[in-house]
């Protein structure tokens, strides 16, 4: 889920493939438009680190090699 708008009172609009929802970001520091988050029962619990996400994907793709 990607943050597409930061709203007042520690809320944000997140979008996943064209579907948007308003959620709370009160459990995170420094949210910005473009951040990807892990969502649970209406609250953003963690930010997804794009570098680490890429690294995980690479490991997965490379799993069968060598």
């Amino acid at each position: 889920m990607r943050i597409t708008e930061v709203l007042p009172n520690e809320m944000a609009r997140v979008t996943l493939d064209g579907v948007s929802k308003t959620v709370s970001t009160a459990l995170l520091d420094d949210v910005a438009v473009g951040d990807y988050i892990v969502l649970h029962v209406g609250y953003a619990l963690a930010k997804i680190d794009p570098e680490e996400a890429e690294r995980t994907l690479e490991m997965l793709v490379m799993a069968g090699v060598g």
Binding site: A26, L27, L28, D29, L45, A46, A53, T56
Partner: peptide, 18 residues
Amino acid sequence: NQYIRAVTEDGNAKAQAA
């Protein structure tokens, strides 16, 4: 930690404080 893209060693301090 396989879930490195979202999990850290210490977790979410703000959540723990709450």
